[in-house]
């Protein structure tokens, strides 16, 4: 059974004229305990996707989907109030900025306490015990001292640990981490990431790790989905993506990751794709990468569909099937545009 199954999820931004598409017919399946990485530039709609799954899109957005199930229940068929409660008992989300995702006016303990009591722990002493064990499980030393403190009294890394503890309070089967380490110091980043991955291994929690940083995903995920301008461009096992990315966009993202150590040669230039992600009210015709794509051909003015490729995964590109050509070019790093 799939932990998460999305068929044709679209998210639109309401405007005075016609709605603007932010995410367009997005489909994905995620297995029990899978670690999925979602990668894309800012503005690609990856955070909106997370919000849509959690049911917390702003009222300015509308979403529709053919099918959206979480842990076996179809969310689209539920009543509004039931849905929010069901989602929160199955999935949790942690945000980029730990300081702003905790309410500055309430102590750490009371925010945890509140979450636990909405999720069915009704006696005070039980909750207290649970709070301490949760804080302990996210690697907070001496949790008794933390619970009476306020978010502004803790460091960013500590706040993110607390945010994870709150997220775990609902015993989620799916943990969505939206850029969980971007706002943290480099030395703290790996600690937080390790914590998230440990949850994945220990408790078999499904992880959806949303990031713009490919390096973060390469060693930590089972599968990777690449989003560009609201479209899923490529979705395949991490190994396949790293070794043999089929979509020009995925390849350019991979090439733009700085290399350390032996692989780095002094004076070599980092690859960057020309141009910018299109504004949502000025989407190009056909393939959304079209105007920026180093390999675009005439047929790219027709919108490509996401199709399966044997021994790989799914790719949205007309040129993905021409395997020989693309893989040989990739090895030479010849995609580089300038």
């Amino acid at each position: 059974m799939n932990l998460l199954h999305i068929e044709n999820l679209s998210i639109d931004l309401k405007t005075r004229s016609e709605p603007l598409s932010i995410v367009d017919r997005f489909s994905i399946r995620m297995g029990e305990g899978e670690a999925l990485g979602i990668v894309g530039e800012s503005g690609s709609g990856k955070s909106m996707l997370a919000m849509a799954i959690m049911g917390i899109l702003s009222p300015k957005m509308t979403m529709k989907a053919d099918y959206l199930s979480l842990d076996g229940e179809d969310l689209m068929k539920m009543e509004e109030n039931d849905r929010q409660h069901y989602i929160s008992s199955k999935a949790s989300i942690i945000f980029q900025d730990p300081k702003s995702s905790l309410n500055p006016c309430f102590s750490i303990g009371s925010q945890l306490d509140e979450t636990l009591s909405t999720h069915g722990i009704h006696t005070r002493s039980e909750r207290k015990e649970k709070i301490l064990s949760l804080l302990d499980s996210v690697g907070i030393y001496q949790p008794e001292k933390i619970i009476s403190l306020f978010p502004h009294q803790l460091s960013g890394g500590m706040n993110q640990r607390v945010a994870i503890a709150i997220a775990l309070a609902c015993k989620p089967r799916l943990l969505i981490a939206d850029e969980p380490t971007t706002a943290l110091d480099v030395s703290i980043q790996s600690q937080i990431l390790d914590l998230i991955l440990e949850l994945n291994k220990r408790d078999n929690v499904g992880i959806m790790l949303i990031t713009h940083d490919f390096a973060l995903l390469s060693e930590n995920t089972d599968k990777i989905g690449v989003i560009y301008s609201g479209h899923m461009m490529e979705h395949a096992a991490t190994k396949n993506i790293l070794e043999d990315a089929r979509h020009p966009y995925t390849r350019s993202l991979l090439n733009s990751v700085p290399q350390l150590g032996k692989r780095h040669t002094k004076g070599s230039r980092l690859y960057a794709l020309d141009g910018q992600i299109p504004a949502i009210d000025k989407l190009p015709v056909g393939c959304r990468l079209g105007p920026r794509c180093p390999k675009a051909e005439k047929q790219c003015v027709n919108p490509p569909i996401l199709h399966s490729i044997a021994n790989h995964g799914k790719v949205r590109c007309h040129l993905a099937d021409l395997k020989e050509q693309s893989s040989s070019k990739k090895n030479n790093h010849s995609v580089s545009g300038g």
Binding site: D274, G275, P291, P294, G337, G338
Partner: peptide
């Protein structure tokens, strides 16, 4: 290939 970025 890189032509469009050279126009302002």
């Amino acid at each position: 290939m890189n032509s469009q970025s050279q126009f302002y």
